[in-house]
Design a protein around this nucleic acid. Sequence first.
DNA 1: AAATGGGTATGACAAATGTCATAACTTTGC
DNA 2: GCAAAGTTATGACATTTGTCATACCCATTT
Lengths: 201, 201
Amino acid sequence: MITVYLAEDQSMLNSALTQIIELEDDLTVVGSAKDGQAASAEIMRLKPDVAILDIEMPKQTGLDVADQIHQAQIETKVIILTTFAQKAYFERAVAASVSGYLLKDSPSDQLISAIRDVVQGLTRFDPELVINMVSAAHNPLTAREQSVLVEAVTGGTTHEISERLHLSDGTVRNYLSAIFSKLGVRGRLEAIQVAKENKWI
Amino acid sequence: MITVYLAEDQSMLNSALTQIIELEDDLTVVGSAKDGQAASAEIMRLKPDVAILDIEMPKQTGLDVADQIHQAQIETKVIILTTFAQKAYFERAVAASVSGYLLKDSPSDQLISAIRDVVQGLTRFDPELVINMVSAAHNPLTAREQSVLVEAVTGGTTHEISERLHLSDGTVRNYLSAIFSKLGVRGRLEAIQVAKENKWI
DNA sequence: AAATGGGTATGACAAATGTCATAACTTTGC
DNA sequence: GCAAAGTTATGACATTTGTCATACCCATTT
């Protein structure tokens, strides 16, 4: 019998998936959580064969949980189950040696078969990820530019941003100007939009 | 046998719910769609006893579909199934005479029992909605102020906004100024954030 | 009929923003 | 060891933004 742990904060999906996993004769759900912290603690204790982790969860993300499982060197295989095929998430997941990465935009029987696959030592990555890996635009912003833009998101004045970052006003404006030109936009508002769309900040 | 139609764009949830509904002896899923347009057309044709509609879907929202069902005066009962308990959504749903409004943050057996309830002529509204109805802050912006702010979201200059709305630059700045003061913020960026948080735009 | 509130418009002013040139200092790569 | 790239900083400038006073028109309410 394959033991499965499910961490998913949306109750409707959590309970629905639990039920359909239980329908399979060789699978059983030994526990589930609606936040990352609870999931983490329980997985360490229960050591299930497979942990299915949503990324966006309260308290701790599924990727944080995956890291901890990896570092604790327990046998549990991890399948990330999330909505978006984002390069950055996927990279972190790979770094945490997850066995699977599925999108919620695929049917539930995919998940069932993925569970069986990963206990066999196989890996299962959604094909859409491959497309995103090659097509995703590279972040043109330097680390400092990113941090300036992140501060700009909250909306204070240039002066407030410069204080938070311990820079001069002029420097902040220089950075912002450089960011606008790199992103091909004409103001903070547009820059923030573009950067968010591309998950650069 | 109660016939159910399911409109939900997230495949994982769509297929999982289909399966657990099918598990019930008295319920059957006669069709499902991943966008509002397809759902609308099929519901008109199949006339199921119950239609479960997600709100956020491609092409047409679940609320649009609910409106059409209402106007077509067919017997199909509608249950809205969505993530957030937002006043505006709920009001539109009530206007379309839906029989149920459930949140994805409740377990799937709630949905099953709601299906049986609504065919009996009962209504099922998530209790969390009641809280939101009374606590939601009232929108302080006039219709025109809202439209100015909506245009400001895209990020162009004042002049671009004024052209899109056929107003003078000064008028646009007056509106923005009034908006800032009403929302207690100090710029477009913050105003947009506050307005979005409160679902005013 | 008068008052109120919303929509629209000016003009004027102060402050914030964006651009550019220029320059010094670090770190990193070849 | 030097070139390239990134970080930080000035000063100067044009433009944009936000604020305020004031005004006219049009509905709705009193």
